[in-house]
Design a protein around this nucleic acid. Structure first.
Lengths: 348, 348
DNA sequence: TGCCCCGTTGACAACGATGTCAAATCTAGT
DNA sequence: ACTAGATTTGACATCGTTGTCAACGGGGCA
């Protein structure tokens, strides 16, 4: 007969160590020992416990254990990226996940959307869940609010963008260097009127890329036409519209540097729309899928998001393993991939 | 002077409600009331507690609370997708995240890589962390192992692929219908020799797409040339190689249906490599970025991963809110997007 | 003035697990 | 056969929080 005092919604209660212990006829601590592979349990006892655990489909409660355990590790990481459906973020995420999974660590992922408020909320959500470490892409102007958490020993590693107002590890692309490389490449083709299409000025990497680009023009002694430097483009549509405006102007650029993947896609649309894709050079920052199949292929300064993610995760685990050395700023290089669009000369 | 009995690594201890209570000069239960916004606390007491919490940078421990709380909700979801760096998965993930964030729920994301073992490990990792619900894309042949968890009342919703060996909610694309639509579209252009490039036969959606495709040919009375039906292609390289082989054969296809996004990209490479992209028709299953900028544009059967993710998340939350109705199988339609490649006729 | 009631507060047990420690059992050595 | 020492086992406190419940104090009413 089934018990009359069943659960409310017909759902069986979740088994605990106590249930397993009862069924196996041992003490609860012995179950704990078996589940955690601690020594000094006879093979027969071990087997009885394992059988009981299997019979009840017992799953240990990591958080209850963590509450009492001395290391206080939840084996959980918090990851904040631009957006989980952006390919760049996806690659970072995947690299972090791989490094984490290897160590039995699960990853909370959140999307930032370049919103400082989402940043704060995501971090708070991570901390309430007692993640062992944080890997963050940030949008706020100042991350000093993380200082107390850092003092408590929680590893915090910044990825993609550098921290401000706080001293901690960071893994970033060589944004200025990559942008300069793009500018130099276009200058080498003979271009002098190069448009710059950039992301929100509030984003640290966007400022870096702009700086690298402008510095390179400066070094080459090319005067800067302010009307060709457009910032605060945050999606394909805005980028497309901005470039259309430049192309339709009286003195259009002969080359374009688009400083982010979505902006590059918007620029590609604008060039096609005006039929200028074969005579206007284009170099994009960040690689894009299918760039090699377009005609012309899209020349890009490729970042290495997988390296960013992997290295950031490794920093976190090194810190968790006791590394107390000074915080590092690790710069990952970029790679110029020539596919055609960046090798168009201004002659026409 | 600083205390001599400081922390080992110079890290301050994490404050608990007890510390806040002490600093505010109140009982610990009063702190709990304030933090959780429970009624019956005077404004002055509330203020003192909030000040103390702020001063200590107190963050409540969600898991400790959950242990005692009656609802036993961790406000956490487990999401298993193909791979977090696949654009389709990214869109599903983003939709789930948005629905979850709205409710203060955090999301664990894991990549499946179509590996049954990873599936089991990811699910176990989720359950040890006591997620409130599971949204799963699966690779195993049978998910009966989830039955006990389902009995305990944990909502489990399958996304993208249907469950097997278990009765629960599922949100899937109309795979057979979409594949049939692709076949019909190519047939309508006059094609009779249409190649099928499919994913691993072990994947349920791959079998569905193959079935839909073959059934459509059958209905049209077009004989099936087995040599044109290639399965078990799991990445760009394999797809590219397979299509090259077909193109180099004595009787190449006049049209190609590529049944998955990576396969479509591999097919595009193969067609370019042989210079056949303007005379061989191509329809891909699943939309791909930049498909509209290629020449010809890539005709696709677009899925709606954002809808899949959003609806799956909604199902989970409805179940959590007490919905005990029979499990549903929700089918999300696909959309044929004509961009040129699918409208090439066999004539040449 | 005295009583009741309600708003406010805190002591205490409990959630599911692990660390500590002592009790029980076994082994071996004399 | 007896004891020392090692091995196996479980009772109990505890982690940070919330649910229960009782105590306290003040206001309103008879």
């Amino acid at each position: 007969m089934t018990s009359l005092s069943a659960q409310s919604a017909g759902s069986k209660p979740r088994p605990t160590m106590r249930h397993v212990a009862e069924l196996a006829g041992v003490g609860i601590k012995t179950v704990s020992r078996v589940i955690n592979g601690e020594p000094n349990v006879t093979p027969e006892t071990t087997q009885r416990v394992l059988d009981a655990a299997r019979a009840l489909d017992y799953q240990p409660d990591l958080h209850a254990g963590n509450l009492r355990r001395s290391d206080r590790r939840t084996r959980t990481l918090g990851l904040l990226v631009g957006s989980v459906d952006n390919p760049f973020s996806g690659a970072v995420h995947r690299a972090v996940e791989d490094a984490a999974a290897e160590r039995g660590v699960a990853v909370f992922a959140s999307s930032l959307d370049d919103d400082p408020e989402r940043e704060r909320e995501a971090v708070a959500a991570f901390l309430r869940r007692r993640v062992d470490g944080l890997i963050l892409t940030v949008a706020s102007a100042d991350q000093a609010y993380l200082e107390p958490e850092l003092q408590r020993g929680t590893p915090v590693v910044f990825v993609d963008r550098e921290p401000s107002g706080i001293e901690t590890d960071a893994v970033v692309s060589d944004n200025a260097g990559g942008a300069a490389r793009a500018a130099e490449h276009l200058l080498a083709q003979g271009h002098r009127r190069i448009a710059y299409l950039g992301d929100l000025h509030s984003i640290q990497t966007a400022r870096e890329r702009r700086r690298g680009f402008l510095d390179a023009l400066d070094r080459a002694g090319v005067p800067i036409d302010e009307s060709l430097v457009v910032e605060d483009l945050h999606d394909q549509g805005a980028a497309c519209a901005a470039l259309l405006r430049l192309l339709d102007g009286s003195n259009p650029p002969t080359a374009v540097f688009s400083a982010q993947n979505l902006i590059t896609i918007g620029a590609l649309h604008a060039l096609r729309e005006r039929g200028r894709h074969r005579d206007t050079a284009l170099v994009g920052f960040d690689d894009i899928e299918l760039a090699d199949l377009l005609e012309p292929g899209v020349t890009v300064i490729a970042q290495h998001p997988d390296d960013l993610g992997r290295i950031a995760a490794e920093r976190v685990f090194e810190r968790l393993d006791g590394d107390r050395s000074a915080s590092q700023r690790i710069v990952v290089g970029t790679t110029l991939i020539m596919r055609g669009s960046g090798e168009i000369s201004p002659g026409r």
